[in-house]
Amino acid sequence: MKYRSVFDIIGPIMIGPSSSHTAGAARIGRVARSIFGREPECVHIFLYGSFAKTYKGHGTDVALVGGILDFDTFDQRIVEALSIAEKKGIKISFFQEDALTEHPNTVKVVLGDKNNVLELVGISIGGGKIEIIELDGFQLDLSGNSPALLIVHNDRFGAIAGVSNIVAKYEINIGQMKVARKEKGQKALMSMEVDQNISKELLDEITKLPNVLQVTKIND
């Protein structure tokens, strides 16, 4: 794992005792909230490995919920996140899972309301850094460190080129890009991390492309 500076090793400004168990957890929760696009009515959190064993003592529970409430890692309200969620009427459930995962700090977050359900799997890799490895059954490789586009589309010829051409038109540099599909010719998910902020105009153009079904942006 490469770090850009000594501050990446020390970790971010944060609430809590552990960059992996609190700052990383808060960031995973916040990315899930950003993709969901609104405050959920219910949340199911499935914890694996080290997260499952120590989530209460290390504050992983309040950090995840704080992120889902859209609190940053240094927000003092994180310590009261569970009670804040309860006052808002958000139903929170935690589940300790025994299944073995590739990384010890793994969590699956399921957000839902009457209109939609989102399922996200993330890992906290240390120093407050995270990776989003699955979204609604699609495999991902999303760091959460940069603005990103998530595009659900039909798996058809020209779909990827159409999106790339629009991104190039707006002089947006692509840091990394991945396309995942469950079955050939069915739905696919394009994830793209970029170096600049994503404008509404760019989103609108991509949304109008043939075979594009849904477009979501994640801001840094």
Score class of each variant (00 low, 15 high):
Glu97Tyr: 04
Ser146Ala: 13
Ala159Thr: 15
Lys114Phe: 12
Gly89Phe: 08
Ile133Gln: 07
Glu86Met: 11
Ser124Cys: 12
Lys178Leu: 13
Gly158Cys: 07
Leu149Cys: 06
Lys108Val: 11
Ala148Cys: 09
Asn154Thr: 07
Asp8Arg: 05
Pro40Asn: 10
Arg38Leu: 09
Glu39Asp: 15
Gly127Trp: 02
Lys91Gly: 08
Arg77Ser: 09
Ala52Val: 03
Leu100Asn: 12
Asn219Ala: 13
Arg27Ile: 06
Gly127Val: 03
Ala168Ser: 15
Gly16Ala: 09
Leu111Tyr: 01
Gly127Lys: 04
Ile13Cys: 13
Gly122Ala: 10
Lys56Phe: 11
Ser164Pro: 04
Phe46Gln: 11
Val43Arg: 00
Val6Phe: 14
Gly175Val: 10
Ile133Lys: 09
Ile172Gln: 01
Ser83Trp: 06
Met14Ile: 04
Lys200Thr: 11
Glu39Ser: 14
Glu39Phe: 14
Val43Glu: 00
Pro40Trp: 03
Gly67Ser: 08
Ile90Met: 11
Gly57Gln: 10
Asp98Ala: 13
Glu171Pro: 01
Asp141Glu: 12
Leu140Lys: 05
Ser146Lys: 12
Asp70Lys: 10
Ile166Cys: 06
Phe94Ile: 02
Arg27Tyr: 05
Val6Gly: 06
Glu134Cys: 08
Glu183Met: 11
Ser143Asp: 07
Glu80Tyr: 13
Glu193Cys: 05
Gln96Asp: 15
Ile198Phe: 05
Glu171Ser: 15
Glu102Leu: 13
Glu205Met: 05
His44Gly: 10
Leu150Tyr: 04
Leu202Arg: 02
Ala25Met: 06
Ile28Gly: 00
Lys53Asp: 10
Gly126Phe: 07
Val107Trp: 01
Thr216Ser: 14
Leu120Thr: 00
Leu111Ser: 01
Thr22Gln: 04
Asp61Gln: 06
Val65Ile: 12
